[in-house]
Nucleic acid binder design. Structure first.
Lengths: 347, 347
DNA sequence: TTGTAGGCGTTATCAG
DNA sequence: CTGATAACGCCTACAA
């Protein structure tokens, strides 16, 4: 039952909102008293009651901008995601980090604001936001070497924490992450221990520390058996890249019997290519991934992979920022959290 | 090469930042002139040059809080995601909407601020943020009937747009979405046209309009053939729910030869259950999904599904808010964007 | 074209 | 315990 005509909505003129002033007048006290009542200072029971009644009656929400201006604190922390091309927020890892960080910040009564960086134009505007007192601190995820936003944060001395550690990070900003190299070495070693003779790797673009480190771990596990042509590099993290990478690997080394993919989604793509090629997994070829993402459990067969303590990473980053906000000293450098190898059916 | 000892970072005392005042002094002009130079007013070439030099020399970023307080505009728009339990931001649909909205807002030099709502505590704080002049407008995604944040926005008369339309939305907030019912009817009809006799549906929890509408579309396509026991309801959108739902359906109706899943991820789960049960897809059972998400193309076989114009939805929502911000009247009610049926291999 | 001054809504200081 | 009063940093009449 759709109405035939609906008047366009009036151009929204921001209605005047009630202020401390109004509350003070309604309650018959001074603005100072209202402010103290709100922020937990000494206020007589009578005054407090009058103020609460006034607020209940005419409603009141403190103006954030004014409060921020005065106190120099916004009670907000930025969650900055460097999203190149596609959705950084769509990455399940980042989503989980975000959720965990939000929970911690929320508990400390801080608002998490997500800032998405995609274009240079974004960078500039986000830099302005960070500099302009919009937030008290920042958590940065998926930064690459040379990301300008890191420099902005450092110059600003904005309390911050970085998830992962871009090579050029330095000591000015603490970070939290995992030991990608060791984790990769462990799972590859385990794969080799299942009797594989020719094990390759599907590696991703090398502009992020996690990628180089995982490759290093593979190399170290392979030891003298390492051969350059067993490593294919793919541009992105999607299953098509994984499939293409696997096909290339099969071409280069038809006798391949093991594959380490730099992420589960790549491994899932590899499974597809192997299926096409008529190779059995794990019979003919053992496959392992990284991340323990939804792909890992939905794949056929389910992937053996490395689980990162994502939630812990998110909350550690949040705590790192909060600690700085409270003025407590924090050790520079990184917090490395432990990973676990999850052994399933693909190897 | 790890240093053995690193001094803890000094508790960050927010350094004093340079203000218009400083720039004015350095450039030998008044604060008013500096402000005008920044905001495009009449300024002599000489003054402008001096000001720019001063800024280049000592650096300057306008204080957002002060500017917001004065102009009553924050140049920021909230992207509010009602994330129940798990990551709303992990949902690829929401991620894509977000990206598209960000692109539009970014082009209009507005900052998109993501606000994540999970707990009641979040709701309260986010309401405060929206009310407190932190943002000029809001885009709301995945709201359900009765979500308190909608009421907050309505009461505030905050320029906003809702993605999807919770049943109790009313006319105060414009929305943008798709016609779930028609889209569902179309794809189910097409499935039926492949000669299926017993077609069931895996439906999700009914607290969201999209779910009820998709169910309605299925029902309408089925016509007199509709039977209550052919519909199973599952609590969430993950592939396990899909698999469980499919198993239940097989149990209730062993002769089933068609399934409409309310989302691709559910359909993917259904495929798994069908594989277990030894049913061929699409030979024995035809399966269709909804969303055209990554699941659809990675499944074996690839899913026939409904594609939503996600990017258009995101940018339409952003434009809706921007238009209100510019004071232009907008028609209340909804913008319904067209969907397309994507026919692949699963039916 | 430029300088001056008032005020946006809060909180904090300081007398009462 | 409470009430004035002065900032916080910026923009914008208004006057020069």
């Amino acid at each position: 039952m759709r109405r035939r005509y609906r008047a366009p909505m009036a151009p929204s003129e921001p209605q005047r909102r009630t202020t401390v002033h109004d509350i003070a007048a309604a309650a018959g006290v001074s603005r100072g008293t209202v402010s103290r009542a709100l922020n937990g200072g000494y206020v007589s029971a009578a005054a407090r009651a009058a103020i609460e009644e006034a607020i209940a009656g005419i409603g009141f929400v403190p103006n954030t901008a004014a409060r921020t201006l005065r106190t120099r604190r916004s009670q907000a922390v930025a969650f900055v995601a460097l999203g190149q091309h596609a959705g950084a927020f769509a990455d399940p890892n980042i989503g989980a980090v975000m959720l965990a960080a939000n929970a911690v910040l929320s508990g400390a009564d801080h608002q998490m604001v997500n800032l998405l960086l995609e274009s240079p134009r974004d960078t500039e505007r986000v830099a302005r936001h960070l500099s302009g007192g919009f937030v008290d601190g920042a958590i940065v995820v998926s930064a690459r070497a040379g990301d300008p936003i890191i420099k902005v944060i450092r110059d600003l001395r904005l309390p911050a924490a970085v998830v992962g550690h871009p090579p050029d990070l330095g000591d000015a900003v603490p970070y939290v992450g995992i030991d990608n190299e060791t984790a990769a070495r462990e799972i590859v070693s385990r794969l080799l221990a299942t009797g594989r003779r020719r094990t390759g790797m599907i590696a991703a673009a090398q502009d992020r520390d996690s990628c180089t480190d995982r490759l290093a771990g593979y190399r170290s596990a392979m030891g003298p058996a390492f051969e350059e042509h067993l490593v294919v590099r793919v541009p992105g993290h999607d299953h098509r890249c994984g499939a293409d990478g696997m096909r290339l690997l099969l071409e280069r080394e038809p006798a391949i019997d093991g594959v380490f993919a730099a992420s589960d989604v790549l491994a899932a793509g590899a499974l597809e290519a192997l299926r096409e090629a008529g190779r059995a997994v794990p019979g003919d070829v053992g496959v392992v991934g990284f991340d323990d993402s939804p792909w890992a459990v939905w794949s056929q067969p389910r992937l053996s992979t490395v689980r990162q303590p994502i939630e812990e990473i998110g909350s550690a980053a949040a705590h790192l920022v909060l600690r700085q906000l409270r003025g407590e000293p924090v050790d520079p450098g990184g917090r490395i959290l432990p990973t676990t190898t999850v052994w399933r059916d693909s190897a």
